Deep mutational scan, measured.
Amino acid sequence: MGFKLLSKLLVYLTASIMAIASPLAFSVDSSGEYPTVSEIPVGEVRLYQIADGVWSHIATQSFDGAVYPSNGLIVRDGDELLLIDTAWGAKNTAALLAEIEKQIGLPVTRAVSTHFHDDRVGGVDVLRAAGVATYASPSTRRLAEVEGNEIPTHSLEGLSSSGDAVRFGPVELFYPGAAHSTDNLIVYVPSASVLYGGCAIYELSRTSAGNVADADLAEWPTSIERIQQHYPEAQFVIPGHGLPGGLDLLKHTTNVVKAHTNRSVVE
């Protein structure tokens, strides 16, 4: 069995187990497998329904001669939608809004960016022009300005110390501490036991640490421990890039980060 097929099978099995364990909360999309990078042309966006009122959005972007996937989250909030992270750029984010209108038909009224990198804030200006209120932590807003990236308009308070959590509509926002970046936030959907790890969490097929220019490698494993301790009931975990899975993604990420750190020390 090929690795790609095995990865998709694991996603399907995880979703099936969740649907059985929580039949009222989960209505997993039966329309197909989780979209992969090879299936999404740059400039297009796919939506994948995880649970009743919960979707991931998947886009792709060219970077350094390669094409990478990027995940975000959409959560229903009454007759409105909360968006977590842009679709990595203005063109993708405009396509995301169009796809949401086509498939869901509810307005996106608020959006949260989970850290300051372009795959999370690139497209904020498109959201703002569409009347979406954009939010991020003060740290993310400051770092985005320093980096020359787009800056969300509103500040999220109460997320300055490791372990801080605040309720934001249908989700809980959690600051686990520094990891992929010093400002990275985690998003949890309690009604569906869905954990969105953003770039602080890796997919299972990833074996290298990737972009760690703004990471705190020493603190990252401790931050992941905080996530595990705060959300032990999480059933569906979405990484910032690639295929979702279960809580095993947290341990896998820790292993990859520690291996990278150990290699760096040896070198």
Results as ranks from 00 to 15, higher is better:
residue 2 G to F: 13
residue 2 G to H: 15
residue 3 F to I: 10
residue 4 K to A: 04
residue 4 K to I: 14
residue 10 L to T: 10
residue 11 V to A: 07
residue 12 Y to W: 14
residue 12 Y to L: 07
residue 13 L to T: 14
residue 14 T to G: 04
residue 16 S to C: 11
residue 25 A to H: 15
residue 26 F to G: 08
residue 29 D to L: 13
residue 30 S to K: 15
residue 30 S to E: 07
residue 31 S to K: 14
residue 31 S to W: 12
residue 35 P to C: 15
residue 40 I to N: 15
residue 41 P to F: 08
residue 41 P to V: 13
residue 43 G to R: 14
residue 44 E to D: 15
residue 45 V to G: 03
residue 46 R to Y: 15
residue 50 I to Y: 07
residue 51 A to V: 09
residue 52 D to W: 06
residue 55 W to Q: 01
residue 55 W to V: 02
residue 55 W to P: 01
residue 57 H to Y: 04
residue 62 S to L: 11
residue 64 D to W: 13
residue 67 V to W: 13
residue 68 Y to Q: 12
residue 68 Y to K: 03
residue 69 P to E: 11
residue 70 S to T: 14
residue 72 G to S: 02
residue 74 I to G: 02
residue 76 R to T: 07
residue 76 R to C: 04
residue 76 R to N: 07
residue 77 D to Q: 07
residue 77 D to K: 06
residue 79 D to Y: 15
residue 80 E to Y: 07
residue 81 L to E: 01
residue 81 L to P: 03
residue 83 L to T: 05
residue 83 L to E: 04
residue 86 T to W: 00
residue 87 A to H: 00
residue 91 K to W: 15
residue 91 K to L: 14
residue 95 A to S: 10
residue 95 A to I: 08
residue 96 L to K: 00
residue 97 L to H: 02
residue 97 L to W: 04
residue 98 A to D: 05
residue 98 A to L: 09
residue 102 K to H: 06
residue 102 K to F: 05
residue 103 Q to H: 15
residue 104 I to Q: 01
residue 106 L to T: 13
residue 106 L to R: 10
residue 106 L to G: 11
residue 107 P to S: 13
residue 108 V to R: 02
residue 109 T to D: 13
residue 110 R to T: 10
residue 111 A to T: 12
residue 112 V to R: 03
residue 112 V to P: 03
residue 112 V to I: 07
residue 118 D to Q: 12
residue 123 G to S: 02
residue 124 V to L: 08
residue 124 V to S: 11
residue 126 V to G: 06
residue 128 R to C: 04
residue 129 A to K: 08
residue 130 A to Q: 15
residue 130 A to N: 15
residue 130 A to R: 14
residue 137 S to Q: 09
residue 137 S to L: 11
residue 138 P to K: 13
residue 138 P to C: 12
residue 139 S to K: 12
residue 139 S to G: 10
residue 139 S to M: 07
residue 140 T to Y: 04
residue 141 R to N: 15
residue 142 R to D: 15
residue 143 L to R: 13
residue 149 N to T: 14
residue 149 N to C: 15
residue 152 P to K: 02
residue 153 T to Q: 15
residue 154 H to R: 09
residue 154 H to E: 12
residue 154 H to Y: 05
residue 157 E to I: 12
residue 159 L to G: 02
residue 159 L to M: 12
residue 160 S to M: 15
residue 161 S to P: 06
residue 163 G to E: 09
residue 163 G to T: 11
residue 164 D to Q: 09
residue 164 D to C: 04
residue 167 R to D: 07
residue 167 R to I: 13
residue 171 V to A: 10
residue 174 F to E: 00
residue 175 Y to D: 02
residue 178 A to I: 07
residue 179 A to D: 03
residue 179 A to S: 05
residue 181 S to G: 01
residue 182 T to M: 06
residue 182 T to L: 09
residue 182 T to G: 11
residue 184 N to I: 02
residue 185 L to T: 04
residue 185 L to Y: 02
residue 187 V to C: 02
residue 187 V to I: 08
residue 188 Y to S: 05
residue 190 P to S: 05
residue 190 P to H: 05
residue 194 V to M: 06
residue 194 V to L: 09
residue 194 V to K: 01
residue 197 G to Q: 01
residue 199 C to A: 00
residue 201 I to F: 15
residue 202 Y to E: 09
residue 203 E to R: 01
residue 203 E to P: 12
residue 204 L to M: 09
residue 205 S to P: 11
residue 205 S to Q: 14
residue 206 R to F: 06
residue 209 A to M: 11
residue 212 V to Y: 05
residue 212 V to C: 04
residue 215 A to R: 05
residue 217 L to R: 10
residue 218 A to I: 05
residue 219 E to T: 13
residue 219 E to C: 04
residue 221 P to K: 15
residue 222 T to D: 12
residue 223 S to K: 03
residue 223 S to C: 03
residue 224 I to P: 00
residue 225 E to H: 15
residue 225 E to V: 11
residue 226 R to C: 03
residue 227 I to R: 02
residue 227 I to D: 01
residue 232 P to W: 06
residue 235 Q to D: 10
residue 236 F to G: 07
residue 238 I to P: 02
residue 243 L to H: 13
residue 244 P to S: 06
residue 244 P to K: 05
residue 250 L to F: 06
residue 252 H to D: 02
residue 252 H to A: 07
residue 254 T to K: 08
residue 256 V to Q: 06
residue 262 N to V: 07
residue 263 R to P: 07
residue 263 R to S: 08
residue 265 V to Q: 14
residue 265 V to K: 09
residue 266 V to A: 13
